[in-house]
Design a protein around this nucleic acid. Structure first.
Length: 325
DNA sequence: AAGTCACGCAACCGCTCGCGC
DNA sequence: GGCGCGAGCGGTTGCGTGACT
């Protein structure tokens, strides 16, 4: 017992950015002696730095096997997949990405991937579609854009029950309409048919569900020996449109069949108003006209725009969906 | 040209865990 | 068994830089 602290705060150890001279001292020392004891290293190397600072500088910057430069699509995809399995275990993720450090991956996640997933309406923590952004109204509006407005009246919805208390079948209807939109198919006929018939048994009505339903194996993420259980299955490829659609379909299906989620939705209006769901600014959903826009895009903006409008939705005031509530 | 803002990244901070005393 | 330290990790901060007005 009685060891001296690693970083004696009374000492005026240097902090802040490293100078080239300090880098050289540290690199030369480690190449000669190896890292060894980080606590004694600064003194032996002639550095006025904390051992912790030296370790960080070496592992995050000076290490010779570090790969610099922009992350490739493959690396990005791997990070997303690993994060869906491992969460914020940056060191574990970095261990499976040769040449990348946990700090670098963490920074890249926070500055690029996280934002992109949020823009795509995907919760970066759970890797599932964000229901708070799944504003069904606009999808329905776009879906029924050619329906006689007199047929629908939203007053009942806005004046009555919170949207969070929505009938699960309505959620399913909206989600299916969303998926039809994602598939670049016109959901109008489908929604109109459902609303006219009062039939909420959407699943059986969706035109060829199998057409874009997920193969079983795509539920299982397998990255470098890691595989996720079906319960926390995640999109296997956010960068490919088809896989993205498959993932969306799967995740929405899973959510709509998740009793806990439904329980949450049924009780959420006790904790929050439906304003959060309805607060999305008015917008016109952008059709996904290109089937290859996203995966082949070379710029981040192009990647982003692919799905940025997918969940921008609104409810027309003339829509009456009270029957679904 | 100058000021402002947003973004990215390196570095720091604070915590936990494992180990030695 | 308890304490303290080293190492490692994740979260956060702050600075540099480029874009924009």
């Amino acid at each position: 017992m009685g060891r001296a602290p690693c970083c004696d705060k009374t000492n005026s150890l240097k902090k802040g950015p490293w100078t080239p001279q300090e880098d050289l001292l540290l690199t030369n020392y480690i190449q000669t002696h190896g890292p060894g004891n980080w606590r004694t290293l600064p003194k032996n190397a002639g550095l006025q730095r904390c051992g912790k600072s030296c370790r960080l500088r070496w592992t995050n910057y000076l290490r010779p096997d570090i790969k610099r430069g922009r992350f490739s699509f493959e690396e990005e995809e791997t990070i997303i997949q690993l994060h869906s399995v491992l969460g914020n275990k940056w060191s574990a993720i970095a261990a499976r990405l040769p040449g990348r450090t946990d700090n670098e991956i963490k920074n890249y996640w926070n500055t690029h991937i996280r934002k992109r997933l949020l823009r795509m309406g995907i919760d970066p923590v759970t890797h599932t579609p964000r229901l708070d952004l799944l504003d069904m109204s606009s999808i329905l509006r776009s879906a029924i854009g050619n329906v006689n407005p007199s047929f629908l009246n939203l007053q009942g919805l806005l004046g009555a029950q919170a949207l969070m208390n929505v009938n699960p079948e309505f959620l399913k209807l909206a989600a299916t309409a969303t998926l039809l939109s994602l598939k670049n198919e016109n959901p109008s006929n489908f929604v109109t048919q459902q609303l006219n018939s009062g039939n909420c048994q959407v699943q059986s009505q969706v035109a060829p569900s199998d057409q874009f339903h997920t193969p079983t194996q795509s539920n299982n993420v397998n990255v470098n020996g890691l595989s996720s259980s079906p319960e926390n299955s995640t999109p296997s490829n956010y960068l490919g449109e088809n896989n993205y659609l498959i993932a969306q379909q799967n995740q929405v299906d899973n959510l709509l069949h998740d009793p806990e989620l439904m329980h949450y939705l049924n009780n959420a209006n006790q904790n929050m108003g439906y304003e959060s769901v309805l607060s999305t600014p008015l917008s016109t959903p952008t059709p996904l006209n290109s089937s290859s826009t996203y995966v082949n895009s070379s710029t981040e903006e192009e990647r982003d725009t692919y799905c940025s409008d997918v969940f921008k939705l609104e409810i027309p005031e003339s829509l009456d969906i009270s029957d679904y509530l």
